[in-house]
Design a protein around this nucleic acid. Sequence first.
DNA 1: GGAGTGCCTCTTGCATACAATAAAGTAATT
DNA 2: AATTACTTTATTGTATGCAAGAGGCACTCC
Lengths: 241, 241
Amino acid sequence: MVLHYSPMSQSGLLKVDKVPASLRQQVLLQMRDAIISGHLLPGTRLIERELTDQMGVSRTVVREALRQLEAEHLVEVIPNKGPFVRQLSINEAEDLYRIRAVLHGLAARMCAENITKKHLEILEDALELVIESYSNSSERTLKAKTHFYNALYKGTQSDSLKAMLETLQARIARWRTLGLAHPNRSQERSKESIINLKIIIDAVKRKDADQAESVMFKEDIQAGREVTRLLNIEQSDQKTN
Amino acid sequence: MVLHYSPMSQSGLLKVDKVPASLRQQVLLQMRDAIISGHLLPGTRLIERELTDQMGVSRTVVREALRQLEAEHLVEVIPNKGPFVRQLSINEAEDLYRIRAVLHGLAARMCAENITKKHLEILEDALELVIESYSNSSERTLKAKTHFYNALYKGTQSDSLKAMLETLQARIARWRTLGLAHPNRSQERSKESIINLKIIIDAVKRKDADQAESVMFKEDIQAGREVTRLLNIEQSDQKTN
DNA sequence: GGAGTGCCTCTTGCATACAATAAAGTAATT
DNA sequence: AATTACTTTATTGTATGCAAGAGGCACTCC
C-alpha cells in the first residue's frame, strides 16, 4: 500500500500511481462529500464512534477531519456534546449568496484579466455542458454548473480566490440543489441564467472585465433571490401543514 | 476547577465564573495569535513535540488546533513532514487584498443597510481611536484599525461575513503590519485613509449604501497598492544586498 | 402522583503508546 | 574520493486508553 514518487519520473514516463492521500485526507474528503451531497442532512448529530466504525479508522483521524470541517463551517461542534452537520438559517443563506455574488464578480473580472487560451476553451466547453444539462435532470445541471464555476475559478489564476469560493460553495450546496430541483423553480430563471453565462464568457473573451463582473454579480444576486423565494415558500408550506 | 451553573441563579446572584474554554480552544487561540502577531514567523517549522512542551498539553490537542489553522490557511502541512507557518507570495498578497476590498465593500454596504444606533456609536468611537493612533506608534494604529474593522463587521449584522473577514484579516496580518510600520510608508496614505474612513461612516449614517461601498472598496484597493509597493521595495532591496 | 436526587451509560475531551516515514549520518566498496 | 547501502534518529501518522461531562432513567421521599 505504500507508494513512492519515482525519482526518475521527470520525463513523465514511469509515472506512479497517485500516492493515496493520508487517511485523514480521505476521511475529510468523504465526510465533506457526504455533507455537500446531502447524504448527511443538516442537523444530523455526528457521533465519533459511528463514524469510526463506518470508515474503519481511529477516532483520532475522524476528530481531526471534524476540526477541519468545523473551520469550514460545515459542521458545528457543541462543547461536550459533539459535532452536528451545520444547519443554516434563511438569513445566513441570503448573506452567503451576497458574499458569493461579490466574490464571483471578482472572479469573472480576474478571468477577463488573466485567462489563458487553454482555460478559455475549457470554460466554453463547460458552458456547453450547462446548456445541455438544462434539458436533463436537475442533478446534472448542478454538476454542470459546478463544473462551469470551477473552470471560472481556474481561469482567475488565483488559488486564494479559488479556494475561498470552493469552501463557500460547499456551504451553500444544499440550497443550490434546492434552487435547481424545487418544483416551483421559475422557468424564466433557467433561461436568464444561461443568457447571463453566455454574456459573461463573451465578456471574458473580449477582456471586458467590467461587464464580466457586473453580469456575474447580477446573475448571482438573482440566483440568491430565487433561492430565498423558494425557501420562503417551503417555510409557509410547512406552516400550513 | 469544575464549575456548575447554580440552579438558583434566576436572580443573577450566585453567578458562576465563565467556564474556561476547552484546552483545544485555548491552544488554537494562542497559536493563531502567535502567527498573526508575528511571534511565529512565516516559514517556521512547527514541531508538534515542541509545541506540546511549550504549552503543556498533549499532542492530540495541538494537532487538532493545527488542523483548524490549516483550514484557515495560516499553516501549511506537508505530508509526512509536518506543519509550517504559511508563507505568502506577493501575488497572493495582491489577490487577498482584492478579495478583502470587495468583501469590505459589501460589509460597508450592509452596515449602511443594517446598522443599529448602538453599533454606529461604537463605530464612531472606533474612528476616533484610529485618528488619535496615527500620531502614535504603528502598533497602536494597527490595533485601532483592527478595532474599527471589527466594529464595521459587527454593524453588518452578518455573522458569516464577519467570520470570513476575520479569517481573511488574519491571513494578511503580517502585511498589514508591514504596510503601517514600513519606513517608506507614504504619509499621504495615512491622511487619505482617515478621510476615506470618515466618508464611509458618514455614508453609513446617511444610509448611503452605494457610497459606503465604493469608498470602502477604493480605500482597500489603495491600501493593497501601498503594501505591494512596499513589498516590491523590500524585494529589490534584498537583491542589491 | 410529582418533584427531586442519585446512578448509569453514552459520548466527548485529553493523553499516551505504537507504527511508519524521512533525513542525516556512517561505514563499506569500488 | 565518490557512491551506495545501511543504520540511526527525529518526527509525523494512527490507534487506543483513561477521565470527565451530559442526559436519561428509576427510585425515593414528600
